[in-house]
Each structure stands twice: as structure tokens, then as C-alpha cells.
């Protein structure tokens, strides 16, 4: 089938799939970000068990394949009487893994903060929580905009995991699989999805650059 034939037959499904991919991406990344910040705070905390737990989190989720995690959530967790919707399973898999990378980027950002600034914060009486929330995390975030932008794109690509489960409405990759089992979309069906992923990634990249220029810290 040609692009125009595919679009006239599946156009509205592509639109729906694009929206599903965006929604999964936005939700996964937001979750990944919150978890990533929390794990990072644990990793720099003065409480040793928290530091260890944070490190373990990163080691596990940085090194586990997304598909393996998804299979675990969908097929193994029901044996523990934990049954989540396919959407929730995809969301969890596509946020726990990027959260580990998010924490790695934030740690790299933290390492650029001069120790003296943290001492200065303590010396004016800031508590650990204040030092973290007013000095450490803000500076770390502002110096990790570009890696986090890349992580957002990577998170979007990770949501293609959704094609491995019968998710409805389908995501972009799931739709390609569906088209190819019901019609002869071939490479063209994939091409359309790929262009939609690419277009989204380009926009994300541009916005990321703009934000980075605005918030980058002069040293």
C-alpha cells in the first residue's frame, strides 16, 4: 500500500496512536522525573541505608531490558495477585527505567556544584532538606536540561514496549504491528510511524535547547 492509501484507511487510527504515544510519553517521563529526583535525594542523603537503596535502584533499573520488565509486570505479577491494566504496566516499565537514567544525569549535575556552595548553605543555617531543595537540585536540574531532553526522547521510544501487549487504543508501534497483520502495510506503515516519532523528537529537541539556553548557570 502507498502512503496515501494507508493514510486514507488508517489515518484516524494513526492520529489516535500518536496521541496514545504522546500520552504514555508524558506520563512516563513525569513519573520517571519524580522518581529520579527522589532516588537522587536518597543517593546524596546522610542516611546510609537510603544511599544504598538509591544505588541499588539505579543499578537494577539501569541494567534491566524494558521488555523483560514489562513481561514480568504483565505475566508474573498476576501470580502474586497483582493485576494491573496493560496501560499501567507499560507506564510502569517505561518510567522505572528512565528514572534510573534521570538520577544518573542529576548526579552528574550535582558533581558540577562546588562543595563550597553547599557549605555556604549549611553555614547560613539551612537544613539538609533546604540545602537539597534550594541549592543542590535546582543547580543540578539546570545543568542537566540537555541530557534530560534526550531522556525524554528515549522515554518516548521506550513506550514502544506497548506494542508487546494488546493495549487499546494502540500506540504508534502497536498500530504498525496491527496494520501488518490485517493489511499489507509493509515498510510504509512503519515509515509513517517512524516519521511521527521523529517529528516529535525534533520538537522536543528544539524546546530542550531553548530551555537550556534560558536556565543554564553562568559559572
Amino acid at each position: 500500500m502507498s502512503i496515501s492509501q494507508l493514510l486514507s484507511e488508517f489515518g484516524s487510527q494513526y492520529a489516535e496512536a500518536l496521541f496514545t504515544t504522546w500520552k504514555l510519553t508524558a506520563l512516563s517521563f513525569s513519573l520517571a522525573f519524580v522518581i529520579g529526583v527522589a532516588v537522587t535525594v536518597m543517593r546524596v542523603s546522610p542516611v546510609r541505608p537510603l544511599r544504598i537503596a538509591g544505588e541499588i535502584y539505579v543499578q537494577i533499573f539501569r541494567n534491566i531490558p524494558g521488555a523483560a520488565l514489562l513481561i514480568l509486570l504483565v505475566y508474573a505479577f498476576p501470580y502474586l495477585n497483582i493485576v494491573w491494566s496493560y496501560f499501567t504496566c507499560v507506564l510502569i516499565a517505561a518510567s522505572l527505567i528512565p528514572a534510573a537514567f534521570c538520577s544518573e544525569y542529576l548526579m552528574a549535575g550535582i558533581n558540577t556544584i562546588p562543595v563550597g556552595q553547599i557549605e555556604a548553605a549549611r553555614s547560613i543555617g539551612m537544613t539538609f532538606v533546604q540545602t537539597i531543595s534550594k541549592v543542590v537540585i535546582p543547580q543540578s536540574l539546570r545543568s542537566s536540561v540537555l541530557p534530560l531532553t534526550n531522556l525524554l526522547v528515549a522515554t518516548m521510544l521506550t513506550t514502544a514496549l506497548a506494542s508487546q501487549v494488546p493495549l487499546k487504543p494502540r500506540d504508534l508501534t502497536g498500530l504498525v504491528a496491527h496494520i501488518n497483520t490485517h493489511a499489507v502495510g509493509g515498510v510504509t506503515a512503519f515509515f509513517i510511524s517512524a516519521m511521527l516519532y521523529c517529528g516529535t523528537a525534533v520538537v522536543i529537541g528544539q524546546v530542550g535547547n531553548l530551555i537550556d539556553k534560558r536556565v543554564r548557570i553562568l559559572r
Binding site: P114, G116, Q117, E119, A120, A121, S123, I124, K134, V135, P138, Q139, R142, I217, L218, R219
Partner: peptide, 13 residues
């Protein structure tokens, strides 16, 4: 108790 450091240590952000 205030403290002033050799390297100023202002919050750069």
C-alpha cells in the same frame, strides 16, 4: 555564626 570563605561560595544559580 556567619562564615565568609576564601572562595566566596555565592549560590551561582
Amino acid at each position: 555564626v556567619g562564615m565568609v570563605f576564601q572562595s566566596f561560595n555565592l549560590f551561582s544559580h
